[in-house]
Design a protein around this nucleic acid. Sequence first.
DNA 1: TTGATTTGGTGATGTACATCACATTTTGTA
DNA 2: TACAAAATGTGATGTACATCACCAAATCAA
Lengths: 230, 230
Amino acid sequence: MTVINKYDCVLCKDKSCAVAILTPDELKLLTGNCSEVELKRGDTIFKAGSLTTHIVYLKTGLVKESLIGSNKKEQIIQLIKAHSYLGLSSMLGYKTNHYSYKALEDLRVCYIDSTVFKQLVQSNGKFAFEILVSVSRENLNNYHRCVNKSLKQMYGRFADAMLYFSQVIYESNTFDLPITQNDLAALTATTRESITRTFTKFKNEGIIELNGKTITILKMDLLENISKTG
Amino acid sequence: MTVINKYDCVLCKDKSCAVAILTPDELKLLTGNCSEVELKRGDTIFKAGSLTTHIVYLKTGLVKESLIGSNKKEQIIQLIKAHSYLGLSSMLGYKTNHYSYKALEDLRVCYIDSTVFKQLVQSNGKFAFEILVSVSRENLNNYHRCVNKSLKQMYGRFADAMLYFSQVIYESNTFDLPITQNDLAALTATTRESITRTFTKFKNEGIIELNGKTITILKMDLLENISKTG
DNA sequence: TTGATTTGGTGATGTACATCACATTTTGTA
DNA sequence: TACAAAATGTGATGTACATCACCAAATCAA
């Protein structure tokens, strides 16, 4: 993990929509309490249970958000793309983080002192409003996907995952799967073996193409239908 | 549904912690854009898909929050106790409500114009902060319970539901189940038949007592253990 | 380059739980 | 009070998917 020369948040090209609203004075305060760091693929950013002394803003890269259930099984909540905060709800609602965060690619992140962040929320209602909107959307989306896990059965959940990568994460019909099949099982609440079997089935039916880690969706409408019917 | 004589939000004894923070001017604005209504058990407050023109604050009573999946199955997200807002995340993040709300008891609610509510968030950072904290906590709690549905199996989820009623909703070892076994199935992601069977099993094992709708938890530690081991 | 570790593929087997099909009891209402 | 509708109880049956067991392929580390 490499700390980068600190530069002014005003000039930062990766800053969040919320931070863009801050006044010059507030931006100065932020700059003084923010440090940029580079992380490598596979690095843990922070773990569930850690104190929320800092909030992390993801400038570039892809991150896995997950938790371990009481039965020791991992559950992946979402993948987080650049220009998002990690663990906002935990930081705002509690003293400890509820989820763990791991780098799926090399990352650039900013660590922001959480006291300063909360201070900014309280001093600038428009900033607070932007944060509220993004927290609300993120939570509704996550919840929606979580509900589907107990409402749909395996093929439907698998289709959901493929659509998630294609439409939300990469916005393309072709993409390289950034996680292992084990992780894919943790994302779709099933087992690694079932993922393998579903891959071969979907390949055989010409719904998707799979070359190594590269997935191409051939029949999008069929995939969406499988997602709907569960 | 009965509209009550409007009285000043300043004098309201059921106002939220967030509203208690507002300035006299802001409270005046709220009073002018808020109306209290009485609803009967079984009434629908609003449905998923409706426009978020108003936000509803629950003054007294118990509410069921739910959604219908694409496979037509209902899923209950949570029961909401007095002194909470209904559908805050939807109102803040989107133009339409994502969940439906139904009265499990007779209710008293306030309808607040959502434009005014958003205005208050933007004009008062401390108010916004309180809202942010409650949205964050509610979402983390809901998500946690949702994750357990796909991580644990039936007895564990049933135990979770019993603990939810006992510890979160009623804060007592004895309580009257406010929902049918059908609803209980929708809350625990199982079927009505399985709920019945689990009831008889837990009764026979002396974990709970069931008289009509009245449930008494006899072995709390055992129930917590079942919840943990799934 | 080699051996170790992680990841991925596939069959055989078991089981948790849904589904179906009724009977019975309770609740709401005409 | 009586009848319909909703809610509950319980068995028989089926199946989706986990689990186990083992092998092959890819990746990593020395």
